[in-house]
């Protein structure tokens, strides 16, 4: 069994294959299911991601509480004016669109959680479209993302209640960064550097949901997470390396999560949840 990013990369390098090729093979072996069955299941997930993203950029989706809504649509309408450029703006728009759908009790894929469900679709659908990749290639990249998430879950956590937002949106961003590198034709080694850089960027990020709801600041953090993933991938494919290896960054993330006060781990007692406005909104709901 592969349990570290280093093993994952080294094995893929030795075999001269993509990370996703290796992951599909290993997963088929360990679950007793065929690679085809796994692939079709992942394809159905990509489909749900795409439907949610399309919905959220084409209509104003309001949340059940009414605190958030329409961010995906607003950003989508502004992509041509974006200073960062269309790719970043579209990734951000799609990430918020999926998050909007989630907050409205619509259908999404937890990736790895519902709170961070916009990051992977935002990054992958946008980069896939930009580089004219096939649906199969996008599905493959989700396997690479899942493998990264699995390793993070093994050594740290993916839950905001345990490790803060760094563990939830941070992990989603790291998973997306690896997926983007593979989708764009980068190497497994570059994917690992992208994972490390994405996680380092949000090291210590707290989980501070206003009124305990997956809305503020979650919807907008999904946008940041998607753009950050693409930037981490760009940096890695430019040849920039993370000084600290991904596996050590994951361990550090876990340690930071342990040091974090419970007030900063999804309890809505710290961060923006504890601001005057945050409290006022909480009382209203």
């Amino acid at each position: 069994m592969i349990s570290t990013i280093e093993e994952l990369v080294a094995t893929a390098e030795k075999r001269g294959c993509k990370i996703s090729t290796l992951v599909k093979e290993l997963e088929a072996k360990s679950t007793g299911k065929s690679e085809e069955e796994l692939f079709q299941r992942m394809r159905s997930f990509l489909q749900v991601m795409k439907e949610a993203a399309d919905k959220g950029v084409s209509q104003e989706i309001r949340s059940v509480s009414g605190i958030t809504g329409g961010e995906g649509l607003k950003m989508w309408n502004a992509v041509d004016r974006s200073l960062l450029g269309r790719t970043a703006a579209m990734a951000a728009a799609r990430a918020m669109a999926v998050s909007n759908v989630n907050a409205s009790m619509g259908k999404i894929v937890a990736a790895p959680t519902a709170g961070s469900c916009g990051i992977l679709p935002g990054a992958i659908l946008t980069v896939g479209e930009r580089l004219s990749k096939t649906e199969d290639e996008m599905v493959d990249s989700l396997f690479t993302a899942a493998a990264v998430g699995k390793i993070i879950a093994l050594h740290a956590t993916l839950s905001g209640a345990e490790g803060g937002c760094q563990a939830e949106c941070g992990s989603a961003s790291a998973m997306a960064a690896a997926a983007v590198v593979e989708l764009a034709g980068g190497t497994p080694r570059q994917a690992a550097h992208a994972v490390a850089m994405a996680l380092k960027a949000v090291m210590g990020l707290v989980c501070d949901p206003v009124a305990g709801l997956v809305e503020v600041p979650c919807v907008k953090r999904n946008a940041m997470g998607a753009v950050e993933a693409i930037l981490a991938a760009d940096m890695a494919m430019a040849g920039i390396e993370s000084v600290i290896p991904a596996d050590e960054v994951i361990e550090a993330m876990k340690e930071v999560g342990c040091m974090m006060s419970y007030k900063l781990r999804e309890t809505a007692m710290g961060g923006v949840a504890a601001t005057p406005t945050g409290k006022k909104l909480s009382e209203k709901i």
Binding site: M105, I108, A146
Partner: peptide, 12 residues
């Protein structure tokens, strides 16, 4: 891996 990406669910 479907514990990591998945399940398909109604939010939030």
């Amino acid at each position: 891996i479907f514990d990591i990406i998945g399940p398909v669910m109604i939010g939030p």
